[in-house]
C-alpha cells in the first residue's frame, strides 16, 4: 500500500533522507522513531507529495507520488502534530467542510456518527473548535480521515503533548483503523506508544533507516535500549 524505494532527499550538501526502503501493508502500523532531524518528517512529506525526491520513489497503492500527486490524494489522510483546523467552526462543521473538500457529502447524522467513531463526546460536536483540547482536535482529525475513507494514514508526532488518557484513546482508534485495513505510517518520539500501537518499528538516524523490528518481537525496555544504541 505504502512503499519507498531508495527514497532520497538532499538539500544542497545535506542529505535529509538517504536511500529509504520501506513498505507498509494494509492493516499495518509502522512507527518511525528517531531524534529531531533524523528524516521522519521528510519521509512523511515525501509521501504527501509536498517535496520532490532527489532520488528514488514513493508510491501509494502502486501510484508514484511525484508523478501523480493529485491521484494519490484519494488514498491518503494526514494528521499533523497539532491539528488546528478552523477554531471558529464547530467540530461538526470542520468535519463537514473537510469531507466536502474530499468529495464526500454526509448528512448531519452521518457526520455525528463519524465523530463518535473517532471517540469525540457528543456534547462537543456543536462546540467551536477554539474551545477543544488537543486530544479532542486530534479526534476530529481522525474523523476527517475516516470520513475520507483513506487507505493510508500518515501521522506526524500525533501523540505529542497529549495526556496519557488521550494518548491511550488515540492508540485505540489507530488500532481500530488498522483493523479496518488502513496502512498507517506514524513518525513519533514516543517509544512506549510506538511499542504499544505499532506492528513494526523503524529507527532512523541522520536520514537512514538503521533498524526495523516487529513490535511483538521486542519488549519496551529492549526497544528503548535499541533506540538509545542506534541514535
Amino acid at each position: 500500500m505504502l512503499e519507498a524505494t531508495n527514497l532520497t532527499k538532499r538539500y544542497g550538501n545535506h542529505t535529509a533522507l538517504n536511500q529509504l526502503n520501506l513498505t507498509v501493508e494494509p492493516g499495518e502500523i509502522f512507527a518511525l522513531l528517531g531524534q529531531n532531524g533524523a528524516g521522519k518528517t521528510t519521509t512523511i512529506n515525501l509521501f504527501l507529495g509536498f517535496i520532490e525526491p532527489s532520488e528514488g520513489m514513493a508510491q501509494i497503492n502502486g501510484v508514484s507520488v511525484s508523478e501523480n500527486p493529485e491521484e494519490i490524494k484519494q488514498y491518503l489522510a494526514y494528521i499533523p502534530e497539532t491539528v488546528m483546523l478552523y477554531s471558529n467552526l464547530t467540530g461538526l462543521e470542520n468535519l463537514e467542510y473537510f469531507s466536502s473538500l474530499a468529495g464526500f457529502e454526509y448528512s448531519k447524522t452521518e457526520l455525528a456518527e463519524l465523530l463518535s467513531t473517532a471517540g469525540l463526546q457528543t456534547q462537543a460536536f456543536d462546540l467551536r473548535l477554539g474551545g477543544y483540547s488537543k486530544g479532542m482536535r486530534q479526534k476530529v482529525g481522525i474523523a476527517i480521515a475516516i470520513a475520507k475513507k483513506a487507505k493510508v494514514l500518515l501521522l506526524d508526532e500525533p501523540t505529542s503533548g497529549l495526556d496519557p488518557k488521550a494518548s491511550n484513546e488515540f492508540s485505540t482508534i489507530l488500532k481500530s483503523l488498522a483493523a479496518r485495513g488502513t496502512a498507517i505510517l506514524m513518525a513519533t518520539h514516543d517509544i512506549f506508544r510506538a511499542k504499544e500501537v505499532a506492528t513494526r518499528i523503524g529507527i532512523m538516524r541522520e536520514g537512514c533507516l538503521q533498524s526495523v523490528v516487529r513490535a511483538s518481537d521486542i519488549s519496551a525496555n529492549e526497544l528503548e535500549e535499541l533506540y538509545l544504541r542506534t541514535v
Binding site: L48, F50, E70, K73, Q74, L76, A77, Y78, I79, P80, E81, T82, V83, M84, L85, Y86, F98, L101, A102, G103, G141, I144, K148
Partner: peptide
C-alpha cells in the same frame, strides 16, 4: 503556520 494547509491539500483540492 498551523499545519492546516497540509490537511487541506490532502483532500481533493489542489
Amino acid at each position: 503556520e498551523n499545519g492546516l494547509l497540509k490537511i487541506l491539500l490532502c483532500q481533493k483540492a489542489t
